[in-house]
Design a protein around this nucleic acid. Structure first.
Length: 118
DNA sequence: GGGCTGACATTGA
DNA sequence: TTCAATGCCAGCC
């Protein structure tokens, strides 16, 4: 609370933290992360954080392939270098992806606000 | 220094 | 019911 301004600065950091907490075989959405951060409509910024995240690596690695839109579509697959890399990554974890769309999405959905408590 | 864009989501009509 | 407009933050021109 002392630094409300810093909270925004940690927005990316917080996004990475949440995405890293996503267990294998599960997926989350931009809105869920944004809601967890306190900004429902900030989902757009979360997507921007993902773009910056895919440039990171090593300790800062973020499983962006587990982050998709609420429609279950692999919107950012094109940023993985290969249009199927994201799908391959998800399938490797047991997630069924068909036509760039995650099957049983509601079942695989992982809500940080519900699973992860602040 | 100011304005636009971007891997989305929610609300209103 | 569906379509359109709005809101958010950070990076880039």
């Amino acid at each position: 609370m002392k630094d409300v301004n810093e909270r925004y600065r940690n927005f990316f950091q917080d996004v990475y933290e949440v995405v890293r907490q996503v267990p294998p075989g599960r997926v989350t959405t931009y809105g869920a992360i944004a809601h967890y951060l306190g900004s429902r409509q900030g989902a757009r910024t979360v997507g921007w954080a993902m773009q910056a995240a895919h440039t990171l690596r090593g300790d800062e690695f973020v499983p962006c392939h587990r982050v998709i839109n609420r429609l279950g579509q692999l919107t950012g697959k094109q940023f993985f270098g290969s249009p199927t890399a994201m799908q391959q990554a998800l399938e490797a974890e047991g997630i069924v992806v068909q036509d760039d769309q995650v099957q049983n999405f509601p079942q695989l959905f992982w809500d940080p606000s519900a699973e992860l408590q602040p």
